[in-house]
Structure formats: C-alpha cells, structure tokens
Amino acid sequence: MAYRFDFTSLWDYAPVLVHGVATTVGLTVAGTVLGVGIGIAGAAARNSASRPLRLAVGAYVELIRNTPFLVQLFFIFFGLPSLGIRMPEWAAAVLAMVVNLGAYSTEIIRAGIDATPKGQVEAGASLGMTGPQIFRYIILGPAMGKIWPALSSQIVIVMLGSSVCSQIAAEELSFAANFIQSRNFRPFEVYFAATALYLALAVLTRWILARLGDRLFLKGAARA
C-alpha cells in the first residue's frame, strides 16, 4: 500500500510550531548578541600583551572548535550540576550557544584584526590614543566590517545547530516537531515542515544580517 501524505493534521499543531520558532529565534538572538560580545573580548585578549591570557583564550577556542556542540550542551546541562551549577533548559541552551559562538567568533574577529594595516595603529598611537582607544576607535570597526560575511555564516550555523537543544528539552523548533510527531504519528510530514521552517529562518537570518552589516559598516568602508 502506498503511503498517503497528509499535511493537514499539522494545522491543529500550528501554535506548537509557532512557539518552537519563537523559541529558536529567541535562543539565536540571545546566543548571537552574547556570543559575538565574547568573540570581541576574546579577539582583544588574543592580541593582548599577557601571554597566559593569550594561551588561555587559545585553549578555549581550540577546545570548543574541536568538540561537538551536542557534547558541550550535555556537559553544561548534565555535567555542571555535579559542581552545584544548575540551570533551566533554556539557560543551558543559551549558555552552550554563547560558549560555542564565542569561540568561533573569537577566531573570525581575530582574523579581521590581523588584517588591520599597522600604519593605522601607529597613527593612532602618534595621536596619543591609548591601547583600548586604538582598539575601540581604529581597529574594531573596519575589522568587523571585513569579517561580517564570515560571522554571519557562523551565526546561521549556530542557529541551525540549536536544533539539538531539543535533546535537553529546550522547547525550540525541533522539540516542537518531536512533540507533534509523538501525537499525530506523521513523522515525515512533521519533520518536513520543521525543515522548511528552518530553511526560511536561515534565509531570513542571512538577509537580516546582510542588511545590518550594510547599516553598521558600509559607511565606514566607504570612508576608508
């Protein structure tokens, strides 16, 4: 007997999907803002004069980039409570995303900083600017502009990767899909719909980040 596709039963669960999409978006926004913040701090630390600090940040970046996100998530959610650090599912999901994106964006932003012409830094120093001032006003803006496309791709990857947060019962989109298919027994249709929603989210995220990049960095680039 041939299988009959039936997407109509999904309509009854539309609110569940909407809740899932909203949670995925929320996790991604929180993870991105904090993660990129850590990335900027990490990139600054990797260029700092302190060798132990540079080594510590380097170890953090390599450790995170060479282990799966799912294992990082499990370690945070199941492992850390042994040390008395307990948190709700959504907080563990956000923390894992922040730690993960923080490592990748440290590496990406550092590449942008390395591409800053030395003469600009020297020019800043000759104007009497301090190290942090040079970083804030001369290095950071153009560096972020240069690496924005790479950072945007990484943010999309983190958004898609957040689908495994369903495994610690964070109620995001793939959790919603698991929930629905356990009720209507139509896994193929449910996962197909969830996948289409993820694809739409990925396209939308790329579009928004591209607009945001133009807004933030195009002016500076035109002046340079």
Partner: peptide, 21 residues
C-alpha cells in the same frame, strides 16, 4: 543551499523516516 540551510538533525530525521516510505 538546501543542505547548508537546514539542520543536520532534521536531515537525519527526514532520511530516517522517509526511507521506509
């Protein structure tokens, strides 16, 4: 675009549930 724009987890689920169909 399809594979880069969707989560690996969803790709796994779809293959897992589509092949029997």
């Amino acid at each position: 675009e399809l594979f880069q724009g969707t989560p690996l987890l969803m790709q796994l689920f779809i293959v897992f549930f589509a092949l029997p169909l």
